[in-house]
Design a protein around this nucleic acid. Structure first.
Lengths: 339, 339
DNA sequence: AAACACGGCGAAAACGGTTTCGTGTTGATA
DNA sequence: TATCAACACGAAACCGTTTTCGCCGTGTTT
């Protein structure tokens, strides 16, 4: 077990000073040809690599970015992480992933753990508990310490920082409009409670489209699930009672469950009833019939967030100017609607 | 923007030495009551938190663990990460995630990036390219440097380190046996090329079960996909030609595609043809019919891997003893087979 | 020959902690 | 009163870098 070699080791071995070694390895003009070559050769031979931790301490830069998200077993979030990881890696950054598991406390603890020097900045999506509670002091604290934060998807207006979201309202609007244009009359929405910023926006888009149409709004056509957890019973009862001919769902799972249920009842998709979901994940692609969805472009979102964060981290300027990037959703047409 | 406060700041402010502050904050007996209280109060007031980087440098321990996996947009891997993250977090560790994207080079680069002090140990699953190439020098190098490595799922026997896998052979064996017991005669296998350690093991289990049965082995009932990428055409042709009455697939996607195809042909699942897949992901649960799978218990696997790694990291002893933990797969019965 | 420039290198501080080993003061003991 | 332990604290080394500054010797200039 040959342990890592340090500058000091090289210096001792070659009988020069540590500073000389350091400079030689950075190809400094200050050091003579011979010495430089000797040191560089030696370093290469013993595969010297500078210690990241020491450099971090010196530079006060870790080249790590912290990602705090509610859940990772969720297609959308994994695509975002992938986007973040790819972009960050290309710029020499590593990604530390922390899971809040929808818990406010975990979110706080994770942030505190990372905020003490482990990372240069945060990319986060708020836990449902945090959004429900409306307590964002942990975010404010880190921003006050000068640690940049980029919020994505589940964001809040109460914290001043960069943000990147998709236009959820527009996505829901377009989807609902699609239904209307196809002559659907009883258009339902299956969503979650309003405290989730995204659900709220989607509901808004749905309502807007209906309001603009001759159909008008029927609040009873909206099913609000109390949590992200599946409750098949609630969906079944709702679909049985309301007999919609089109259903917009705020995620894939609600949609797939709904489809399965109406199929069992003997209804034909998309003729008798159409479905559109949110999130372009595996489920949508491989569902039967395949599910039309409002794609959220998670990977793109991750990239954007990472870019915004790293740009801010690396900018010397202390501009206190924040931007919110709004990505356009796209409707991915599949077999759960007529086309 | 109030920047982080350091020991030095406290020392200056309270006109004591840095060492005194440090000791006081660790509640050392060495420091007098009054001084301690004064310092602790001050630290609390200004919300002092020690700098992780400095501590890492001193202790030569980062409390970070590096996870290098081929892909994150993959249900199995995300469950493993979740297991790792939960366990590691409970023990005060953070998780740095790096994606190799099935590329050998990226795997190497990522490991090198992290091996220079950023992490205390690795948890990895090999990229397909690495397994195909059979080059494990990057792994050997880090282990030689004394950095512990735990391999999971896609492992190799060529590197001496801790490992955790599920018994893929057993899983495939049990699934195949299930088919045989249910009277299926033409049992097919859809897998990937053999260089993936898991595919190999699963094929072995499939063959073993058939060999032990009166049915015997028919190599032509095995479809080897050249990559993990979906090729619906290949699956269709195969199913059309071979007309199996049971299909074992090494992942969910192959299975769901197969099901969709035979359903279009008018076959009934599970009466005419049964399906079993690997990986208990969302697809299986929400497929129509729901898919019976060999569950891999990713979260458990992640936990085990994290436990093994952290135990090794924290054990002073330099025992060079490695273990391979084999988790039992379980068959999750759903509607794609008779029951 | 004195002055100076400059190339080549080392000493030391700094990043922010921990920890060992003093050291000065106090009070008790011989 | 001299000795000594206990107490409370500080100095300094150390982790592995980077970087500023100073120094020495050589060669050139006047």
């Amino acid at each position: 077990m040959k342990s890592k070699i340090t500058l000091k080791d090289i210096a001792r071995e070659l009988e020069v000073s540590i500073s000389t070694v350091s400079k030689a390895l950075k190809n400094s003009e200050e050091i003579g040809r011979d010495t430089k070559e000797k040191i560089q050769a030696f370093a290469k031979l013993y595969n010297y690599k500078p210690n990241n931790i020491a450099i971090s301490l010196k530079n006060k830069r870790t080249k790590n970015i912290g990602v705090v998200i509610p859940d990772i077993v969720h297609h959308f979030f994994t695509t975002v992480i992938r986007g973040i990881e790819k972009y960050a890696n290309a710029r020499g950054y590593n990604v530390i992933v922390c899971l809040s598991e929808e818990s406010f406390d975990k979110e706080v603890i994770n942030m505190e753990m990372l905020a003490n020097g482990s990372i240069d900045g945060f990319i986060m999506s708020l836990s449902s508990e945090t959004q429900e509670k409306g307590d964002y002091n942990h975010l404010k604290e880190v921003t006050e310490q000068g640690i940049p934060v980029v919020l994505f998807d589940r964001i809040t207006q109460e914290v001043e920082c960069d943000k990147v979201v998709i236009d959820d309202e527009l996505g829901a609007y377009q989807a609902t409009k699609k239904f209307i244009d196809q002559g659907k009359k009883r258009i339902a929405l299956i969503t979650t409670d309003d405290y989730l910023s995204v659900s709220k926006a989607r509901t808004k888009g749905y309502l807007k489209a209906l309001k603009e149409s001759p159909l008008g709004i029927d609040e009873s056509m909206i099913l609000k699930m109390p949590s992200m957890e599946m409750d098949e019973g609630a969906i079944k009862t709702f679909l049985d009672n309301k007999e919609p001919d089109a259903v917009l769902c705020v995620n894939e799972i609600f949609a797939v469950c709904g489809m399965r249920f109406v199929q069992k009842k003997g209804l034909k998709i998309p003729e008798d009833i159409s479905f559109i979901g949110f999130t372009d994940g595996v489920l949508s692609k491989y569902a039967n019939p395949s599910l039309t969805v409002v794609a959220q472009h998670g990977e793109k979102m991750g990239e954007e967030a990472a870019k915004m964060l790293i740009d801010k981290v690396e900018s010397e300027a202390e501009e206190e100017t924040y931007q919110t990037k709004i990505l356009e959703p796209t409707l991915v047409i599949r077999d759960s609607i007529a086309h």
